[in-house]
Design a protein around this nucleic acid. Structure first.
Lengths: 246, 246
DNA sequence: CGGTTGTTTGATACCCGTCAAGTACAGTGG
DNA sequence: CCACTGTACTTGACGGGTATCAAACAACCG
């Protein structure tokens, strides 16, 4: 769903290519992404496969059921991952942010729909070529497995969140985990951007939009947070942690 | 948390070893498990690493926070995977059944507690040795990644289930998915064994034990299923599928 | 038999989903 | 500058589903 296994392995090399999206070596998300597994030369190989991809707000990257022709690395913006249920309801599986990898397990068909929430930039890797590279580099494969394990643990965390009793716990927990994810990519501010809408949050937490709105308003009134344009400012972290009960 | 990627690749070879748990080659769960990635000779290598492990009902395999010293393959019985939340509540992440693999991502520490529900038998692989084998066999690594992808999709399914509105949908959906998993390991009967208790089911679905009990009783009264000792018989599958709304 | 554990059943309270209306804001065009 | 429109969000009233509290029942084992 998301990801940030960030295990350094630095390698500060100047960019030797002239590509509109800069080189992998100087990529700002490299160290928190799968690519951290690669050394200098290997990065060049990877870079040769990468294609920059810009998405406008609300633009779809791929849809549930589509053949998976590529894998992606988010370098800017945020992507919403959702599923449409047979009865018309929607479930938002998660939000992929900077550094997150899409198509981890190289599935035949995507089981979710991916859509940009705001202006978003991704690194696109043709599946075939990426698969070949993976085959040739077992440590990259190992890295993918690590990341899969990480995403699995995130999925478990979210399952736990969903099974929580009250809506307040869910909302507080969601905001805190989002903040934590921002922190891992360098955004340590207590102001958490919410590029997704209330409906998205509701569908993510298994609540209704009204409940989400009400709770945010309540938390604002109680001065646990402050609703600001485009996000929230987590004023009283301890209070929120209390409410999240985790 | 479970798994059944069952992709054949047969290799019917007679057992040449004298071990109390039989050889990997004739293992009944091999084809549905990670081991299906291996050929005859490689199976021998794997077999040399495996240790049979018998658990009594309610016996713990490992606990949340323990150092992960090994990985396991369930060959008989069922294992409950749960987490204890800070506030004392418990969340049952899932149930590992025959063919399922524990410790997939080779984590440093287990993030869940694993306990046998009934008499259970597992194949134990020392983590170090297993890790070495994996390093030497990229296609086994690939297989692990496939399986991780599968478990991720199961986790997503369960997230979807948890975010469903009514308790009835959850229970019906749970029973159907359990039946499906039994089917993949050869148990195609409409009678679904429930080695776990009502409380386990409740903690798995984010409900209370009373609600689970009440709903099972109701579904029984409505003749959608029949409660039998140790499980349920799914009498009216269509009805249940209707209720599960999926 | 009595003790323990697990399950079922009942009565009540309350959280949250539903339905409905109102507000805020951006964009568009006059 | 101001209506008009659409979208997103907020707020209110109400009812239903589920949690909670409580107790009875069943199964098992000493």
């Amino acid at each position: 769903m998301l990801s940030l296994t960030g295990a350094p392995g630095a390698h500060a090399r100047p960019c030797v290519h002239e590509r509109d999206h800069g080189s992998c070596a100087e990529c700002r998300v490299r160290l928190v992404s799968v690519c951290a597994a690669l050394t200098g030369e290997e990065l060049d190989e990877l870079e040769a496969l990468s294609q920059p991809l810009h998405l406008a707000p609300r633009q779809a990257l791929f849809g549930q059921g589509d053949r998976a022709g590529a894998v992606y690395n988010v370098t800017e913006g945020m992507v919403r991952l959702s599923r449409l249920l047979p009865d018309g309801r929607r479930h938002v599986m998660g939000f992929a942010m900077v550094g997150d990898f899409l198509g981890l397990a190289l599935p035949e068909h995507h089981d979710v729909t991916a859509e940009a929430l705001g202006p978003t930039v991704l690194c696109r890797f043709e599946k075939r070529a990426f698969g070949d590279l993976v085959k040739a580099k077992p440590h990259l494969l190992q890295r993918l497995l690590d990341r899969a394990g990480y995403e699995l643990s995130l999925a478990h965390d979210h399952m736990t969140l969903l099974s929580r009793r009250t809506a307040e716990e869910k909302v507080a927990s969601f905001l805190l985990s989002l903040r934590e994810r921002y922190a891992r990519i360098g955004q340590t501010s207590v102001t958490v951007a919410l590029p997704m809408g209330r409906q998205d949050i509701a569908d993510h937490l298994g609540l209704t939009i009204e409940t989400v709105s009400r709770l945010l308003t309540r938390l604002d009134r109680e001065k646990a947070l402050l609703i600001v344009p485009g996000g929230v400012r987590l004023v009283d972290l301890d209070r929120l942690r209390d409410l999240a009960a985790a």
